[in-house]
Simulated assay, not measured.
Amino acid sequence: MGTVISIANQKGGVGKTTIALNLGYSLSRLGKKVLLVDVDPQFNLTFALIGMDVVNYEDKNVGTLMTRESSVEDVLIEVEENLHLIPSHLTLSAKEIEIMNTYNRERRLEKALKPIFPDYDYIIIDNPPSMGIFLVNSLTASDYVLIPLELSYFGVIGMQLMFNLMSMIREETNEGLRLLGIVPNKFTKQTKVPQARLKELKELYPDAPILTTIPKAIAIEKAQAEGKSIFEYEPNGKASKAFEKLAREVISIVEGQ
Rank of each mutant, 00 (worst) to 15 (best):
R170D: 03
S93C: 04
I230D: 02
T3S: 12
I116E: 00
A225W: 09
L76M: 13
N137Q: 13
I5T: 09
I253D: 00
M166W: 02
P148V: 03
T212E: 13
K199I: 09
L85D: 00
L201S: 03
F243Q: 02
D59Y: 13
M1T: 13
P129R: 04
T64K: 12
K60Q: 13
D126R: 08
I125W: 01
G51W: 11
L76R: 13
F134I: 06
S240D: 03
G176P: 08
A196K: 15
S252M: 12
V54N: 04
G176M: 15
T191G: 12
V136N: 03
E226I: 02
K228W: 09
S71Y: 13
Q160G: 06
N61S: 12
V34A: 02
Y144K: 00
G227S: 09
L198R: 04
M162C: 13
I210S: 04
A223V: 10
N22F: 04
D59V: 09
D126L: 06
F43H: 10
S167W: 03
G176E: 15
V254R: 04
T213S: 13
R108A: 09
G176K: 15
G31V: 02
I251D: 11
V34I: 11
G24K: 07
A219M: 02
L198A: 07
P194Q: 10
Q160Y: 10
E81V: 10
M159N: 10
G24E: 04
E58C: 09
A239P: 04
K95L: 10
S152P: 06
I218P: 04
A223D: 09
F43T: 14
L30I: 02
P206G: 05
N44R: 08
T67F: 05
T140L: 07
S130H: 10
V55W: 01
T102I: 15
D59F: 11
R178G: 14
I210D: 07
G132H: 01
A48E: 08
A141K: 04
A239D: 00
Q42R: 10
L204N: 12
I97H: 10
G158Q: 06
E78P: 01
I169F: 00
G15S: 08
R170M: 08
N56P: 03
A217M: 11
G158K: 07
S93G: 14
I19Q: 07
I133C: 07
E106Q: 12
T3G: 02
G31A: 02
F187H: 10
P115V: 08
E226F: 15
A217Y: 04
I182S: 00
K238T: 14
T3R: 14
S93I: 14
G256K: 14
A242G: 04
I169W: 01
P87K: 06
M100Y: 12
L83P: 01
T91G: 05
F134G: 00
E78H: 08
T64W: 03
F187M: 11
I99V: 15
A48G: 14
V250K: 00
G158F: 06
L113K: 02
F187N: 00
Y57L: 06
D143K: 07
L201D: 05
R107V: 05
P194D: 08
I125S: 00
L113Y: 06
A20G: 02
N44P: 06
A225C: 07
E249P: 07
